[in-house]
């Protein structure tokens, strides 16, 4: 894994991106704005499942009407995030919060797919009602917590001096 990161780090296009004055601020700004689009809409979908808001909106309306926008935000987020990683792979390789964010995104994705292919199949039975099944509410809570943690770990990536002691002892970034 390390050699892959080192290989990318030495690529001329990675170096060019890293040395560009405007690339990093542009990519990071688009990353934050697209995060607002994706995470903002997903947060209200999750809160609908939990029963915190939008209670009069049929549950099935949200995936059909809001998910295309949320996924657009996610796509832009992935592209800009990928470019940020591509431009400074060795900065992120030894960063605990980067790997924590990747792991949290993976778990959030698994939770999303599990919900979609298991619990959501019975949505017609609870679409209009205020009583959401426990499994759906749990999926909403888990998703809210996981995406909030993704946002937090994403922000914490800037604090390379605040990584856990046990992580530093592994000397991964050395």
């Amino acid at each position: 894994m390390r050699s892959l990161f080192e290989w990318v780090d030495a690529l001329p296009s990675s170096i060019a991106l890293r040395e560009s004055l405007n690339a990093y601020p542009t990519m990071l700004t688009i990353h934050v704005v697209s995060m607002c689009l994706f995470a903002g809409l997903i947060a209200y979908w999750d809160m609908r499942l939990v029963g915190l808001t939008l209670k009069k909106v049929p549950v099935s309306n949200i995936p059909t009407r809001l998910f295309p926008w949320a996924l657009t935000g996610y796509g832009i987020n992935l592209i800009t995030g990928g470019l940020l990683l591509y431009s400074q792979p060795m900065r992120y390789y030894g960063n605990f919060y980067f790997w924590a964010k990747m792991a949290l995104m993976l778990v959030a994705g698994i939770n999303m797919f599990w919900f979609h292919y298991a619990t959501y199949k019975s949505v017609q039975a609870w679409d209009q009602g205020r009583e959401i099944p426990l499994n759906a509410r749990l999926a909403g809570v888990v998703s809210l917590v996981l995406w909030a943690a993704v946002v937090v770990t994403g922000r914490m990536m800037a604090y390379s001096g605040l990584m856990p002691g046990w992580w530093n002892n592994l000397n991964i970034g050395a």
């Binding site: 995060m35 607002c36 689009l37 995470a39 903002g40 947060a43 209200y44 909030a148």
Partner: peptide
């Protein structure tokens, strides 16, 4: 910010 953005965007 995420909470604010979602409420505004919807």
């Amino acid at each position: 910010l995420v909470g604010f953005a979602g409420a505004v965007l919807v």
